[in-house]
Design a protein around this nucleic acid. Sequence first.
DNA 1: ATCGGCAATATGTCTGCACATATTAACCCT
DNA 2: AGGGTTAATATGTGCAGACATATTGCCGAT
Lengths: 232, 232
Amino acid sequence: MSAPQFNTWQSVQDEVLRRIHAREWPPGSAIPHEADLAVEFGCARTTVNRALRAVAEAGLLDRRRKAGTRVALHPVRKATLSITIIRAEIEGLGMAYAYRRILAETVKAPAPVQRRLGIRNDPMLHVRALHLADATPYVLEERWVRIASVPTIMEADLTQQSANEWLVANAPFTHGDIAFSASAASEAEATFLACAPGAALFVIARTTWNGAAPITSVRLTYAPGYRMVTEL
Amino acid sequence: MSAPQFNTWQSVQDEVLRRIHAREWPPGSAIPHEADLAVEFGCARTTVNRALRAVAEAGLLDRRRKAGTRVALHPVRKATLSITIIRAEIEGLGMAYAYRRILAETVKAPAPVQRRLGIRNDPMLHVRALHLADATPYVLEERWVRIASVPTIMEADLTQQSANEWLVANAPFTHGDIAFSASAASEAEATFLACAPGAALFVIARTTWNGAAPITSVRLTYAPGYRMVTEL
DNA sequence: ATCGGCAATATGTCTGCACATATTAACCCT
DNA sequence: AGGGTTAATATGTGCAGACATATTGCCGAT
């Protein structure tokens, strides 16, 4: 026989990736149509479509109707971070998880939190808690929950289960935003995380909504040395 | 008619998401089989499969052959970060991009870099450069390139084009890892980024390979105040 | 009671076909 | 020429049917 056969969309994808990496299809160039590739690979167009769609989602191909498919000039690689509950994160590292609630109060949120959530003077649950790995401080959780959006949280025992975990299990959200940054440890943060004031800390700020209703805004301040790692 | 019709996989996906968020399908519970859903929705099983697959990729469903599909107990939401070239990032913010190469030398990499790349004493190109947005320091790029893996980089004019951009366009990679962390500004970093020594800086460390060949390892140190934001 | 193998089953995927849709390129009219 | 309408075209998606594959759970043998 002449041409090798590609009968699964994965094998087609592998071949497409090979051609891109080998510069057989250089950046910016148009690649053959799905129909032509289907003939060449000896499979259905559906299969080629599935493969090309996957590669396009990875950012290596640009596809437009009628215009065709071309190799991305500046491949925008996407790193996907899994946002898990903190207990799972720590246990996944093989360390012992512990949790200490520092504070829980029902108050009006400060202005910045109100602005983030787009609300005005709604009563909110404010929880401050420390997550520990092998008995050493791991991350400080500073959370604001809009009570009207999740009334049942007032019945949760947040001395035992973290607000983080309770919300993941009980307060579904449709969308949200997440921001990563670096911040110098305040006096309070330094105390809780057992580090020097001013130390460089990794911070994750997350805000979530359920439809139009704001749910919660949380600031996770990690102990010094924390690295968030993922594959490309 | 009795039941509404869902004739596109997107509409099926929307309905599935609605049922999950509305707790009609509570966390941990098994949902009907694809075939049953296809009948209920009045569409082909292929369409239901496409929709469920998409929701599963988003982390809200767990699917296993024979075991069926169930709503994730601890939905692992995935945040996807687009890794663009820095020029595009700055121009995308509507700011003027500028680039200043600080240093370029051919040397043996220090031990930590060698370890990250899994090499030993290979000659490497070391480039230090500053990216500016509206004439103020934005990010400091400290890069190590294994020359044997990308020999043509020695002919590139890295005083005009950043190594970042040259590599994206000329040195495809198959995989890599990326780590985010916070770090206190060293004396040198403080000078380049025009901030105080010890300031909390956001750091991205990235290492990429092309197959088995290590390509480059880079450390991007952002000026204070930088936030990496994405949607959930 | 326990272990190993087998059959049932839900998802995974391929095929061939059709039609939908977005976008470009050609064309026509002025 | 210029500008707006139209036709051509590549991708996007739906459908019905078939087979592939991974697991589970049953059942029988020890």
